[in-house]
């Protein structure tokens, strides 16, 4: 039981870290640090970096939370800690 809970927790933390890396890449990476480089590319009337900063990052944020919700749903059941 102890070991199982440890494993559950470390899986949770690992998955969460992956999502947080994506979170940082789309906002701080694409939207801020590499914005100039990305602006050289365009989608429609949007410079790509500008699009990430004002649109793309937000769409990804929403997806991240739902992905985490479904992953944890599965994980909770797998380790029998669901409500």
């Amino acid at each position: 039981m102890e070991k199982n809970l440890k494993e559950y927790w470390s899986k949770n933390v690992t998955f969460m870290s992956v999502l947080l890396v994506i979170w940082a890449v789309v906002s701080y990476g694409c939207g801020i640090i590499f914005v100039d480089a990305l602006n050289a590319t365009r989608i429609g009337g949007f410079p790509l970096g500008f699009w990430f900063a004002q649109q793309g990052a937000i769409y990804v944020f929403v997806c991240l939370i739902f992905v985490y919700y479904f992953y944890m749903q599965k994980l909770d059941k797998e380790y029998d800690v669901h409500e």
């Binding site: 969460m16 999502l19 947080l20 979170w23 900063a53 004002q54 990052a57 944020f61």
Partner: peptide, 15 residues
């Protein structure tokens, strides 16, 4: 403001 006032929800939901 756009990223700052939405990105916090990812932290909120995950952490």
């Amino acid at each position: 403001y756009l990223m700052g006032w939405t990105g916090g929800y990812v932290l909120l939901a995950l952490l």
